[in-house]
């Protein structure tokens, strides 16, 4: 049952990265869109993600509940030492969620939109940035549970180049996912081309940030190269990710967009596999060489069992409904959304 729970944890993180990520990315794209095209971007965005918008963000809640029920020590250690980035991320979530809703539901059309839009766009960038920082910090070995000074315990646990690079990388991935997603949602060639360019832009950004991650890891003595290339799973996943990257560029040039989405999803999945495989089961690495392990630091057996059952039961109820939701709005053409 423990493995069932871990699978759910991993899957919710992946889904949050893919679906929530595409969502964040849509806001990031707005940041990089010229003023005259912003309106179209916004409209496409809304009709594309409106119906499943709430559902996309449930994955984060599922992940966090799994953590605090099943792996309380991991949850609390991260909560204590990464308090500040977690708080920033929360503020980002608040700002983004409410700005998104307000700008759509505000009954009066006036300059208030000029307030909501930048809040939405900037928080769409800051939230995944800090999500990445949190993820990066967890494995960077900078969390020092024995630290006595405020700076060591609560600031340098997350404020270092590696974490920041991972954060930027995450944000770039989000932008990339969103552009690829939106390519398929437009109804004219002009916008399609525009989103294709965005996809290329964010793809390059992601690759650059990826290089930055490796450089930072090297500078901070984090054996990232070994984690990624030191085992065959990592090597194969990276190979696949690279191949799909090449294929995507090719398809983009050909203007064949049908396969783009699955490929982008595939690529991000491969990246997550690479980065998590080698760590498993240790998802938090501490400064003193210690670690927190999903296998050793799980809750009591009975808790894990009931948690697993609850998740399985939930999936039976949720997944068909979710697929039907996505299916209905895909089929009926989301462009008619009100």
């Amino acid at each position: 049952m423990l493995y069932v729970v871990i699978t759910y944890l991993w899957a919710s993180i992946l889904l949050y990265l893919l679906l929530g990520g595409a969502d964040f990315g849509a806001g990031i794209i707005e940041l990089f869109t010229s003023r005259k095209n912003k309106g179209v971007t916004r409209k496409t965005l809304y009709s594309a993600i409106g119906p499943i918008w709430e559902a996309n963000h449930m994955w984060l809640i599922i992940a966090i509940v799994i953590l605090f029920v099943g792996f309380p020590v991991i949850y609390t250690t991260m909560s204590v030492h990464l308090h500040i980035p977690l708080t920033v991320m929360l503020l980002g979530i608040i700002a983004r969620g409410t700005a998104f809703t307000f700008r759509h539901y505000d009954a009066v059309e006036d300059d208030m939109q000029n307030l909501y839009n930048p809040i939405f766009a900037w928080s769409s960038f800051i939230t995944p940035l800090f999500l990445g920082i949190i993820a990066g910090s967890a494995v960077s070995g900078h969390i020092d549970t024995k630290a006595t000074s405020f700076l060591d315990a609560y600031i340098f646990s997350w404020l270092h180049w590696f974490a920041v690079a991972v954060g930027l990388f995450t944000a770039a991935i989000c932008g990339f996912l969103a552009s690829v997603y939106l390519i398929g949602e437009t109804d004219n060639d002009h916008d399609r081309l525009r989103f294709a360019h965005k996809a290329q832009f964010f793809n390059i950004a992601a690759v650059l940030c990826g290089i930055l991650v490796f450089a930072a890891a090297f500078a901070e003595n984090i054996p990232l190269l070994d984690w990624v290339f030191g085992n065959w799973v990592g090597r194969i996943a990276i190979l696949f990710a690279t191949l799909s990257l090449v294929l995507m560029w090719y398809l983009l040039y050909q203007g064949r967009i049908g396969l783009l989405r699955p490929l982008a999803g595939f690529q991000v999945t491969m990246i997550l596999i690479t980065t998590t495989y080698r760590h498993f089961p240790n998802i938090v690495l501490l400064k003193n060489g210690g670690y927190l392990s999903l296998l050793e630091h799980s809750g009591h057996e009975k808790t894990v069992y009931t948690l697993g059952m609850a998740l399985l039961l939930g999936s039976i109820l949720i997944l068909p409904a979710l697929f039907y939701l996505i299916y209905s709005f895909q089929k009926k053409g989301a462009s008619q959304a009100h």
Binding site: V65, H300, L307, A310, A321, L322
Partner: peptide
Amino acid sequence: GPIFGMPFSLEGTAFFIEA
């Protein structure tokens, strides 16, 4: 967390369905 977590994990399902 491990003791009173049960309602939270079921709640997750309820939220999801609601969304």
